[in-house]
Design a protein around this nucleic acid. Structure first.
Lengths: 216, 216
DNA sequence: CACCACACTAAACACTCGTTCAGCCGCGCC
DNA sequence: GGCGCGGCTGAACGAGTGTTTAGTGTGGTG
């Protein structure tokens, strides 16, 4: 049901994929029986293979992290524009993973911590590279800046989630790919504006804070 | 237990306050029995007064929204620095409300939608006032920019939440007041930097996007 | 063939939790 | 004083859910 090539997988893998999809769609309160039904097996088999529901979730976390790592290293090794577009095209395939990560984010799970840590690490590296290339300004707190950038991204996703929950998405659709598309489209212009010119017309606010930080 | 002046309140109000505190601390899966115990009443009385757990939550939402509106209008009418400091001093008192709102945010509840809408509205108004005063730059998408600013704020809270869940808060404390303090302290410098100078050294990224937007 | 390990299942168990039920208690009103 | 009414309670009900149990079939192995 979940994956087009479900028949090819072992029952254990089918259960794991079904769990990732269910958890992503319905949250971690999704019943084991529902996951079992999605995978076409009995609830008892889920426990038989994974020991407990918590262990199943841990297996999902590990699997998602593995896929992310593979995908990330693949994206780094061949980072041509064509490949990037290819990745976007496959977003449909990875949509369940994305949903799962968002759930983990909202749930405060351990996976979410590792995930955002990785994002902040990446952002910091990219920004440093940009600095070296001369396209990005220097910062007094590179880590904090990277964190700020990622926080904005995560916050925009959360806000979009809220809009969707309120039934007033920018484009009322259930398709995650176009949802992400809409999200980036709506935030691209303000984001670039902000990142290009900043918000303030002069440095008085920053100066005031720097002075206050010296002698409170 | 929850509020120092619990004895002064009617049972209904005590239950409501206990529910806000419990929901904020443990999430909306907190059992009715736990709330009842906090309020010093039986679980049956909770249902007797509110009809159901969902209705209790709705009453909590309404109550929180009311307090926010009162507090907000109070902050607008007398917006002197002293009053602002007074509000910060009372953050301890409003910490349960803050926790409740964060829970609602993570839960995607209706309250969260209204709340962030209000925040975005406020941010937009403030930015427009800054524009008029000449301290804030003009934007091609004021609403989107306000949304971006609020998203950053919300995202930072979420990230801090994740760090706390992972047991590695910047300062390991359970006190929400100092937690908020730490959060603003850690993000103030990168935020001001970003909002003052932007991220990029030139306008090439923005220009490229604007050109792409014209003819894709 | 006998047997064993293993994937797998239906049913039952145990527990949590929201809600209902039947009744108690104290207070104002006739 | 009697009496009802509303706040209030302990106990029970019933639904949902994770897990256990006892067993079934099957495929490989001696």
């Amino acid at each position: 049901m979940v994956n087009v090539r479900s028949e090819d997988l072992t029952a254990r893998a089918r259960i794991r994929d079904a769990a990732v999809a269910r958890f992503g769609r319905d949250g971690f309160r999704a019943p084991v029986r529902a996951i079992a039904e999605d995978a076409g097996v009995s609830a008892a088999l889920v426990i038989h293979h994974f020991g407990s529901k918590d262990a199943l979730r841990a297996a999902c976390d590990e699997h998602v992290l593995t896929v992310i790592r593979e995908e990330k290293s693949a994206a780094i090794t061949n980072a041509s524009p064509a490949d990037t577009i290819g990745m976007l095209a496959r977003v449909q395939e990875y949509a369940p993973l994305f949903a799962y990560i968002v759930r983990s984010l909202l749930d405060g799970g351990a996976l979410a911590g590792h995930f955002v840590d990785g994002l902040v690490d990446d952002a910091e590296a990219y920004l440093e590279a940009g600095e070296a290339a001369g396209t990005v300004r220097a910062s007094a707190d590179p880590r904090g800046r990277a964190r700020q950038v990622i926080a904005t991204q995560v916050g925009l996703i959360l806000l979009a989630q809220l809009d969707a929950a309120a039934g007033r998405g920018v484009a009322p659709t259930d398709d995650p790919a176009t949802a992400i598309d809409e999200l980036t489209r709506a935030s691209m212009l303000p984001g670039l504006e902000l990142y290009t010119h900043g918000l303030f017309t002069d440095t008085s606010y920053l100066d005031a804070y720097l002075e206050y930080k010296e002698k409170p």
